[in-house]
Simulated scan of single mutants.
Amino acid sequence: MMGLFSWLYPLIILFFFFFVTSLSSPSPPPLCHPHESSALLHFKNSFTLYNDTLFSIEFRRINNPNNTISWNKNMDCCRWSGVTCDEVTAHVIRLDLKCSGLQGFTGHAPLELSHLSNLVTLDLSRNYDLKLETSSWKRTVANLTNLKELFLRSVNMSSTSPDSFMNLSTSLTSLDLSRSQLQGKLPENVLNLPNLQQLDLSYNSYLNGSFPQYNWSSPLKVLNLSQSGVVVDPYLCRRFKYLQVLSLYESNFIRLSPTLLDNCTQITFLDLSSNNFDGYFPWSSILNLQQLTLLDLRENNFIGPIPEICSNSTKN
Score class of each variant (00 low, 15 high):
113 L>V: 12
264 C>M: 07
123 D>K: 06
63 N>A: 14
164 S>H: 01
264 C>F: 04
140 T>K: 05
162 P>A: 07
122 L>S: 12
164 S>E: 08
218 S>L: 07
226 S>H: 02
232 V>A: 06
201 L>T: 11
11 L>E: 12
309 I>D: 15
51 N>R: 02
45 N>M: 06
27 S>G: 09
6 S>F: 07
288 N>C: 05
180 S>T: 10
278 D>C: 07
276 N>R: 11
124 L>V: 11
265 T>L: 05
270 L>I: 06
140 T>N: 10
278 D>L: 08
40 L>M: 10
59 F>I: 01
255 R>P: 00
118 N>V: 00
149 E>D: 08
103 Q>Y: 08
36 E>G: 08
178 S>I: 01
259 T>M: 10
106 T>S: 13
241 K>M: 13
8 L>F: 15
179 R>S: 08
268 T>V: 11
73 K>A: 14
244 Q>F: 07
148 K>M: 01
17 F>I: 15
158 S>T: 09
114 S>W: 02
101 G>P: 00
291 Q>T: 03
79 R>M: 12
99 C>L: 08
240 F>N: 12
92 V>F: 04
257 S>I: 06
166 M>S: 11
160 T>M: 01
129 D>Q: 10
208 N>Y: 14
217 S>E: 14
36 E>I: 06
82 G>K: 00
134 T>L: 02
51 N>S: 15
213 Q>N: 10
